[in-house]
Amino acid sequence: MSEDMHYCSDEEAVVVVEKVSKKFTRSLRRSLLYASVDILQALMPIFSPKIRDDTPVSLRTGEFLALDKISFRLKKGDSLALLGVNGSGKTTLLRLIYGIYPFDRGRIEVRGRIGALLAAGVGFHPQMTGRENIYVNGAILGMSKEEIDRHFDDILQFADIAEFIDAPSGTYSSGMRVRLGFSIVIHADVDVLIADEVLAVGDGAFREKCFTRIDELKARGVSIIFVSHALNQVSRVCEKSLYLQKGKMIAFGDTEEILALYMADNPGV
């Protein structure tokens, strides 16, 4: 369980997270103020001192560390679970890896095409039809129109929403949005798949279909970063796990060992 936090070399890795820290501000007013100051410093580097990656993150009034010096590497075809109670930093880490948030210290590198399912319907425009959202989301994932055209029927078949494809996605249930989002991502020929609680909705038959496809993706060499509070899903999908607690990295290693530690620390999860 005290396994090396990296376990593979930089050259082997498709995802590199090195001493990454991220801070947030509790107050919206202070957040806007600090953002304005940071933008001015970025525009005028003379007023912004050079900061090394190993320099501790300085916290201003009202700020807190959501993540503190997180490091791991993920090899091609490996699957990693992020474990932790709500507020531990799991979703923040996923969003940093996907590039939604900037990080304050460290290094993140993803080698290849990355696809993310961060919540039901995230990235779907509610006024656009399912058909239109397929093309928009496919383009965001780096798919060409020809590639989307080629996979369109397969996307519909997997999502099983053909009769609603020309309805606004805002009329879809959360399960329908998850099915369509998942189907788009798995047909995008990604190298890294990020999934955050996406299998918490939807019926059992669809979840089983998703697990079968995840197994196929892993066999094809796709790397997966997975978050779920359903620990049986974690055991099924992931060989490795990273345990976070209040933004700090507690343990990294074999999933069954990390699950045992996590459940001992959090009885009743």
Rank of each mutant, 00 (worst) to 15 (best):
E239W: 09
Y172V: 03
I225T: 09
R150F: 09
D153G: 06
I224H: 09
I155K: 00
R177F: 04
F226Y: 09
L199H: 04
R179T: 06
K209A: 11
S241P: 02
S174H: 00
D149P: 10
V198N: 03
L156P: 00
I214T: 00
A195C: 11
V234T: 01
K240T: 15
I214L: 15
Q157W: 01
V190I: 15
I155C: 01
R213F: 04
S183N: 06
D191V: 11
I161L: 13
M143E: 09
R207C: 10
V237L: 11
E208S: 04
F152C: 11
I225S: 02
G181L: 03
L244V: 07
G181W: 00
P168I: 03
E208Q: 00
I194L: 15
L199W: 00
D149A: 02
K218P: 04
D160G: 11
F158A: 01
Q233Y: 09
S174D: 14
N232R: 05
V192W: 09
A200K: 03
H187G: 06
H187W: 01
F226P: 11
S144W: 11
F158S: 02
H187E: 07
D189H: 06
R213E: 11
E163I: 07
C210G: 07
R236W: 03
L217S: 00
S144I: 08
V178M: 15
V227T: 13
A167Y: 12
G181V: 06
A230M: 14
D189E: 14
I214F: 14
K209I: 01
L180D: 00
K218H: 08
A162N: 09
L141V: 08
Q245V: 08
V227I: 13
H229L: 05
R207A: 03
C210S: 11
I140G: 00
R220Y: 06
Y243I: 12
L193A: 07
F211Y: 07
Q245G: 11
R213A: 05
S228R: 15
G204M: 13
D215M: 03
H151A: 15
L231D: 10
F164Y: 15
D191H: 10
A167K: 12
V192M: 08
A188R: 02
I165L: 08
D154T: 15
V222D: 12
V198C: 14
D153S: 15
E216P: 02
L217A: 12
T212M: 02
K240M: 09
I194R: 06
S169C: 14
D160N: 13
K209R: 14
I165P: 08
F152E: 02
V192L: 02
E197H: 04
D203C: 14
A162P: 04
I161Q: 07
D196W: 04
S174K: 13
S174I: 10
E208K: 09
M176S: 03
M176I: 05
V227Q: 00
D203I: 14
E216Y: 10
G181F: 06
G170W: 08
S174W: 02
Q233K: 06
V185C: 10
I140V: 14
F182P: 03
F211K: 03
A205Q: 15
F182N: 09
I140D: 04
F158K: 08
S241I: 03
